[in-house]
Structures are given as C-alpha cells and as structure tokens.
C-alpha cells in the first residue's frame, strides 16, 4: 500500500524540521502528525516517516514502540482511557471502569465490533483534584459518576453516528 502525507501535513513537517538541529529531533512530532493522518502507526507509516525524514527505519521503530500514545494497532473512533491510579481509585475509578465495560460490552484493551469505542486504563492524568477522571480522544471528563459515564457514552454515540 502506498501512503503519502497531505499537503497540510507536509507544511507542518517542514515547520517541525526547522525547530531542531538534527533530523531525528522532528521524529516524535512527525509521528504524532502521522497518527492523526493515518489513524495509527502501522509498519507502512513507520516506513513513510523514515523516508520522509531521511532516518533509518530502525530508528523510527525504536522510538515509535517506546511511547504508549503512539498506537501500533488501530483504536476506536472514541478511545476511552480511564485513570486507575491511586487518587482516582480512592474516588471509585473501579466503578467507572465497570460502567464503561457494562455499557459497551468490552473489556480493558478491547474495541467494540463497529470500531466506535475502545477502552484502556491510563496512568495518572493529573486530574486528581477532580477524581475520578477519564480521557476520550483529546478531551478530559472529570468528577465522574457511573451515571455520568453512561450519559457521556450516549452523547458520543450520537456524535459518532452523525458523522
């Protein structure tokens, strides 16, 4: 499969390249951009990034596989990440995880068959003052209750169906 960066992405890559004295400096911003373009970091994407930045493929694989936010497998259209660390645990994060599992019928690390939702535990989101918390794609949801979670998922479903 041949894939290519969009024009907008290409313009951004040029901007990133100017920020660092080495070619590899731009790698993480470019991988993040690639993830936005292609959904996740497949082997093809790693090859494309290596070619574009003039880096050995091994360097790109080395970096891409180290970071949890660079997805090597596709995730749901709405990627739900529930914090399970101590401050959230003390405020009932287990009930939040259960509410998501029950509502969507999936376990941690799974995606719904329609590809709409995926669920993952996440480490401290720095939302401890408003625990329990979760993140869906780029948005935070704080001071959660199981009821709120069900409502949020219903709203996301609506949004996902509209697109």
């Amino acid at each position: 499969m041949t894939i290519a960066f969009s024009e907008e992405a290409e313009a951004k890559i040029k901007e990133y390249e100017k920020r660092y004295p080495t070619k590899r400096g731009a790698l993480i911003p470019v991988l993040k951009l690639a993830q936005k373009e292609f959904g996740y970091i497949s082997q093809d994407v790693m090859r494309l990034v290596a070619e574009r930045l003039g880096l050995p493929e091994s360097a790109v694989i080395n970096t891409a596989t180290f970071y949890t936010m660079l997805y090597k497998e596709p995730v749901g259209k709405f990627h739900i990440q529930v914090c399970t660390n101590v401050s959230c645990y003390l405020n009932g994060s287990d009930m939040i995880v259960d509410a998501v599992r029950e509502k969507l019928g999936i376990n941690m690390g799974e995606t719904t068959p329609d590809g709409m939702f995926s669920l993952e535990g996440v480490q401290c989101l720095a939302a401890c003052g408003n625990a329990p918390a979760m993140q869906v794609n780029e948005d935070y949801y704080e001071s959660l209750t199981p009821e709120k979670v069900v409502k949020i998922i219903d709203e996301l479903k609506q949004k996902g169906g509209d697109q």
């Binding site: 101590v86 401050s87 480490q123 401290c124 720095a126 939302a127 401890c128």
Partner: peptide, 11 residues
C-alpha cells in the same frame, strides 16, 4: 511532563 500520580499543579 507532569505525571507523578497525585500531582496536578502544572496542568
């Protein structure tokens, strides 16, 4: 890179 669990000041 605020990530120490229990810390939420830099955010």
């Amino acid at each position: 890179d605020e990530g120490e669990p229990g810390t939420f000041k830099d955010r």
